[in-house]
Write a protein that binds this DNA or RNA. Structure first.
Lengths: 213, 213
DNA sequence: AGTTGACTGTGAAATTATGCACTAATAGAA
DNA sequence: TTCTATTAGTGCATAATTTCACAGTCAACT
């Protein structure tokens, strides 16, 4: 739909961060912002921000900077974040319930509108306003409710099977909380939420930059 | 301590994933693995894996591949993951308690041994085996308990202040669950756990790759 | 012992990403 | 109106990262 082809993935990964900063600024009543200021807040060079934005158009005013509200609206449009996304959750154990009760999704347009579990003791129960459905109903629900994003909150050993099921249903975006390296099909994006992995990327520096300071 | 200088950060970010795969393999009883096989599981090219490893040494046998147990041990050593890390948690609200009860940290050597909160109603209470301490005790506890990693699980509006406090105590690695762009000092690594941001990096593709398939 | 097939380690090449530095535009001051 | 101070957008240079492709090594088999 008129979106420039071949935008580097690194750029796409950064735009949500710009959006977050701009949202904060808008809430604080800031009207204009320069790439310089934006860069300071995100710890990147101003040039990178300008370059990133240039993939999509020209949003600034020379000598002035960017209109916060305007740029925010443009970026949300570009990223598809000016609309509602229906999300399905698989796994309503402890973690799944925590996810259901997390208040941060809905304000950003992500609405968890269906929950699934394979445990017969859970199917049929109402958890967090949702009627827990059997995995057999996944395909039907995805189509009828127009679910385009799946969240996986099942024990690791079942996670790959669940991801496979979601992909078979045509889901193209999956957020997995399982500490595994998921195997995805072409055209499907998978993101992992994995605090241990995050910690493990820092210990290298703790071990090796041990200067006396 | 004899660690090669100037290892690219991208490489350091990938090693924990190799470690995870190798752990799985070891548990499944696999003895040898080639860069080819490893690459298939991680969706990266074999050459990348070999190149990454070459920053640290020569771990494979030509014609055979890598010994799973041996490579795993080497990588854990390199990453500082063959030892115990003491972690302090700030914020013992709902999220903080979920983190305390998450069983995935300890088996990987990350031990949450202190919990802090600014809420007087929580200070002094025992939550998840830990006696919740006041923020005033942070500095002392960090030193006495040899805490080198901080986890931040406080509401967004307090997160930056908590991160600043941790950095003032000499903490050089922070895992933040707050949906903000944290400002770090030089030499301090901060990682974010932010499911909304993860979702937002996928909607671009959902919106723009909408081919009829 | 020699041959074969497999696979690592690594320079060199290709690709991708970042940062520089300049031009053009804009607002406000003089 | 002219001058000054800003700052966006961008072509180009540089830097970083990835991939290629091949020499060298190893174990198994004959």
């Amino acid at each position: 739909m008129g979106m420039p082809p071949g935008v580097p993935e690194v750029v796409v990964m950064r735009l949500p961060q710009y959006i977050r900063i701009l949202s904060d600024m808008l809430a604080r009543g800031v009207e204009m912002v320069s790439s310089q200021q934006l860069g300071e807040m995100l710890q990147v060079t101003p040039a990178q921000i300008r370059k990133d934005l240039s993939y999509f158009g020209r949003f600034g005013k020379q000598g002035r900077g960017y209109n916060v509200q305007g740029l925010l609206a443009e970026l949300k449009d570009i990223m598809g974040l000016d609309r509602r996304w229906n999300v399905g959750l698989v796994g309503v154990g402890r973690l799944g319930r925590a996810i259901l009760s997390y208040p941060g999704f809905a304000p950003e347009g992500f609405h968890i509108i269906a929950a699934f579990d394979s445990d017969p003791n859970l199917v049929g129960r109402v958890i967090g306003n949702l009627n827990v459905q059997s995995m057999n109903e996944l395909d039907k629900a995805v189509k009828e409710l127009d679910i385009s994003i799946g969240i996986v909150a099942v024990p690791s050993r079942y996670a790959q099977a669940v991801i496979d099921r979601l992909m078979d249903c045509g889901i193209k975006a999956i957020l997995s909380y399982a500490p595994i390296a998921p195997q995805g099909q072409a055209g499907v994006r998978i993101r992992n939420i994995d605090p241990v992995l995050s910690l493990q990327t820092m210990t290298f520096y703790l071990s090796n930059e041990a200067d006396a300071g």
